[in-house]
């Protein structure tokens, strides 16, 4: 019998109870939220459980919601059960002033570069990461470009006249 969203949900609710928040199934993919201190407990449980077996970290990234005060940064984990071919996603939210989240590198080696990328673009501080430094952007960069308060455009360019682009 292959794994279904209902079985997964029943199993994790049995383990974590009402610490799971916002359980939903957008486009058939089970998604939920946990408190940020719980991220490693949840990852370990999903990995070790003999039924769930989510042992492949597909993606790890973050999103910035500037209007959601106190929980501006969402770190998103995508996991894959390779045996039953089923995927889930969960999020932890953190305050942008203390963006400290435990690192998943102890469990998944793949998390190493993904966490560096997340740090590079959104400034999430992964506590315990062995080498948390910029990976894709230039090392001299002094801000986190995917945070919404920073403009997308390169500010060194002086030839762009807003009048010409109909934005004057």
């Amino acid at each position: 019998m292959s794994l279904t969203n209902e079985t997964i949900q029943a199993r994790i609710t049995e383990k974590f109870g009402d610490q799971l928040l916002n359980i939903e199934e957008p486009y058939g993919m089970l998604s939920f939220e946990v408190p940020k201190e719980m991220n490693l407990k949840v990852l370990n449980f999903l990995y070790d459980d003999e039924v769930l077996k989510f042992r492949f970290l597909t993606d790890l990234t973050a999103v910035h919601y500037p209007d959601d005060k106190g929980r501006e940064l969402a770190v998103v984990y995508h996991l894959h059960n390779m045996e039953d071919n089923i995927r889930i996603r969960f999020k932890v939210f953190t305050d942008i002033n203390t963006p400290d989240v435990y690192t998943a590198t102890g469990l998944f080696s793949a998390a190493n570069w993904m966490e560096r990328e997340t740090y590079d673009f959104l400034g999430v501080n992964f506590v315990g990461h062995p080498n948390l430094k910029r990976i894709l952007n230039v090392e001299e960069m002094d801000y986190f470009p995917l945070r919404k308060e920073f403009p997308l455009e390169d500010q060194t360019r002086i030839d762009k006249d807003d009048e010409m682009f109909g934005r004057g």
Partner: peptide, 17 residues
């Protein structure tokens, strides 16, 4: 020549820089 359509934080805005 100028960065072209990639007016963004990660792209050099013309190699003459």
């Amino acid at each position: 020549s100028s960065g072209g359509i990639f007016d963004t934080y990660s792209v050099l805005q013309g190699i003459d820089q």
